[in-house]
């Protein structure tokens, strides 16, 4: 806006802004390029063939994954991941709210839930394979049964820790149960819930990869393991890179959603800190 309203006075300030942009760009991209350059140089001179140069990997990324492999391996993986995340978030929040609201239910289930959370999620894969066979359902069930615990337990904790003054205020104003749930309990719990979802996301991604590395004939995890067994080094690296990109994509989307959901919360924190 200011650039249009004050074109003349902008001279030195504009240059300063430019300089700031350039400097932050340099800061943001300097180290990655330096590292990639060093890696590239090293890989051209060393005989170690397990670390191909970044350019080779980039080429392999385009050759391997653009085309039918995207439809056959990447999309099914992402589809299972998405279903797993949606189901575990929905069920986790719903069940967590109910359990968090009733004290006896919470005390009844808490030790049990803590134990389930403590089980390393990947050991659920052998159980899933035993109960459901090597199917898509098994993979989704495994993702859900691993990712749900942090969401569930954090929701319980968040709902339980609703500010008592606010609860009493809501009661004395005779706000209905549903309104109280929607306008008080869930917003109050949302920072904890989002922290749980963040943990759940990384568990879900891990389970997506591992469930495919085990008995499976398609999917990202399967492809990467296949490339490794056949010594297709650059292709394997491109798969790792692609998984990394999926991870970053998830983190970015989550960051956006979190900022939207917790806008009020971050605002309060800012004010408190200032």
């Amino acid at each position: 806006m200011t650039t249009h309203t004050r074109p003349i006075a902008l001279g030195p300030r504009g240059r300063l802004a430019w300089r700031r942009i350039v400097s932050s760009l340099l800061h943001a991209l300097g180290l990655p390029f330096l590292l990639l350059g060093a890696w590239g140089l090293w890989s051209t001179f060393s005989a170690n063939r397990f670390f191909p140069s970044p350019l080779t990997i980039l080429g392999a990324l385009a050759d391997t994954w653009i085309g039918p492999a995207f439809v056959e391996d990447v999309l099914p993986s992402l589809y299972r991941l998405a279903i797993g995340i949606i189901v575990s978030t929905a069920v986790g929040i719903a069940a967590g709210t109910v359990i968090g609201l009733f004290r006896w239910l919470r005390e009844l289930l808490e030790p049990l839930l803590e134990f389930f959370r403590a089980i390393p999620p990947p050991v659920l894969i052998p159980i899933g394979m035993l109960l459901l066979g090597i199917t898509d359902t098994m993979k989704v069930v495994v993702i859900v049964s691993g990712a749900i615990w942090p969401i569930l337990l954090n929701t319980i904790e968040g709902v339980r820790a609703t500010d008592s003054v606010m609860t009493e205020t809501a009661t004395s104003f005779q706000i209905t149960w549903w309104e109280r749930l929607w306008f008080l309990v869930l917003p109050a719990a949302s920072p904890r819930i989002m922290a749980g979802v963040r943990q759940g996301l990384s568990v879900a991604l891990i389970l997506m990869v591992i469930s495919e590395m085990f008995g499976s004939s398609s999917g990202l995890g399967y492809r990467i393991a296949y490339f490794q067994r056949n010594y297709l080094i650059a292709e394997m690296w491109s798969g790792i890179l692609l998984l990394g990109l999926v991870g970053i994509f998830l983190a970015t989307v989550f960051g956006l959603v979190e900022r939207r959901v917790l806008r009020w919360y971050h605002g309060i924190r800012e004010v408190e800190r200032a």
Binding site: S24, H27, A28, L29, G30, L31, P32, L35, F50, S202, L205, I206, V209, I210, M213, G221, I224, A225, F227, Q228, I233, M236, W237, G239, I240, L243, G244, G247, I248, L250, A251
Partner: peptide, 26 residues
Amino acid sequence: RRATHTTVEFLRPIPSVALIPLAVLM
């Protein structure tokens, strides 16, 4: 802190299990 920010934010979300094939090769 400023210079490493992007690198860290790029490396951190990579699921570590993705590195299993590489580790096995090495």
